[in-house]
Design a protein around this nucleic acid. Structure first.
Lengths: 257, 257
DNA sequence: TCTCATTGTGTTATTGATACACAATGGATT
DNA sequence: AATCCATTGTGTATCAATAACACAATGAGA
């Protein structure tokens, strides 16, 4: 991997190593406190938030780029990651971060700088275990934070739109594929799993029907343990049967036409 | 729109007008003779087939590019067109058409030619009325033809993979969205619609259950007319109720979680 | 000990999917 | 002109999935 001495160095020489005109934006979902959250970066000198993003090395598979970007931001490997849409409005970069950064620092940008052109961006969404994330800002950013999906700040460029599209995609996938393994800790209770589904779908579900449906997929294993130290009746703990889980991921749940 | 004097002129000067590193490939589906077909172009001097493709003007929305490419190839406006995947293997252009074309003509390619680098491609798929298409080869091509999806030739680069992915996407969409309006003539019979579904899904369906299901969507209108001049009992003609059809397109069919 | 929110485990009703039956039609066959 | 028969139009029985709802068991907190 190429190292750059500074952001400015990256801005000036990055075009040698990265594809230009196309970037990757990652919508990283986590689940905490009953809320579906998205990891955002605070863009340096801009006082604004944006999605973790990055570029594609000239000889790199785009999926590998996304994985790399995600790993750099979260410290996580082997996470669920999926391409979901390409955003290609010609004006989406009018408020290009680089442009503003150049303006702010007062340095005149080279006219043909690789970052100062129109960029498409490929949206990837990721599902991660909130607690396992060791978030790290990139070098455009001065901070990071998780934000509740229902309470997002104004984001840079078209990033709000990208998050919405990712959420819609996630909701659709939820119906046909197992979700949850990547968003929950190893052991979890049925109410916790249900809360996750309710949060993603933004609707309440019947407790009993939910349990039946989840169990019918045959990807859950009920443990002997129960959740201890909680008020009221202690719920059982469950874990995913990883072999069956991954099989279901490949084949999907519903097959009827 | 920019005009080029020749293919060579395009190869040499296109980089001035088009985004480089990213292209659009179109999988154009048509339905004829009970077969699902794809429109392919025969690449000049290569004796090989490939998907209709094109590039994105530097100030053009990617959807507009796809629409433009489609219109140039088929003469059709207002067709169903949807982005479905980005293909980003770094080696997918090893057999780059341009590279081979340069080699074939014996002309030494400029080293930094915009076409001789790694390209991503955004896959779009289109559903068109076979009979309404007035196909026209592009200037890389010497011919075009419809090919049965079950009997495709070897295609250039990763185009076979792109067609397969498009087909999978179409099959999935078929379950949740109305399909057919774009693939069938204005008036059609229930058996014709069924044949279309069976062809796309590659499985046979029960005639009576199919009819019930289709009618339950409420997007079909049965006409007083019947198909005339056919053997056996004359089937009724149907047409799509466009208002309801488009509403269903937006909302999808199934809403249960 | 009692309270009560919550969990575990049902049952019933409704809807949707699948499988199959039979009469009506009308060009083709004789 | 009478008959044949593949195909269409319509209907019904069965099975599976979903939605709606009931009640006993649990266990921390009052």
């Amino acid at each position: 991997m190429i190292k750059f001495k500074s952001v400015q160095d990256f801005r000036l020489r990055g075009g040698k190593y990265f594809m230009s005109g196309i970037s990757i934006d990652c919508v990283i979902f986590g689940f905490h406190d009953g809320q579906l959250k998205v990891l955002l970066l605070k863009i340096a000198n801009l006082n604004g938030w944006g999605l973790p993003a990055g570029f594609i090395y000239k000889d790199e598979h785009i999926d590998a780029s996304a994985k790399r970007i995600l790993c750099e931001r979260t410290g996580l490997h082997d996470i669920f990651l999926q391409q979901f849409y390409v955003f290609g409005h010609p004006d989406r970069c009018d408020n290009n971060i680089t442009k503003i950064a150049f303006e702010n620092t007062g340095i005149k940008a080279p006219k043909d700088n690789w970052l100062l052109q129109r960029f498409l961006t490929i949206g990837y969404y990721a599902l991660v275990n909130y607690k396992a994330v060791n978030a790290t800002p990139d070098f455009f950013s001065e901070d990071f934070d998780w934000h509740d999906i229902h309470n997002l700040p104004m984001l840079a460029m078209d990033h709000n739109e990208i998050v919405q599209k990712a959420l819609l995609t996630l909701r659709t996938h939820l119906r046909y594929e197992p979700v949850g393994f990547n968003l929950l800790p190893d052991k979890f209770t049925m109410p916790e799993l249900q809360k996750l589904y309710e949060t993603i779908l933004d609707q309440s579900l019947d407790r009993r029907n939910f349990q039946r449906k989840m169990l019918s997929y045959g990807i859950l294993r009920r443990l002997k343990q129960r959740r201890e130290g909680v008020a009221h009746k202690a719920p059982y703990l469950y874990s995913f049967d990883l072999r069956k889980y991954h099989k279901a991921l490949e084949e999907g749940f519903q097959s009827a036409w």
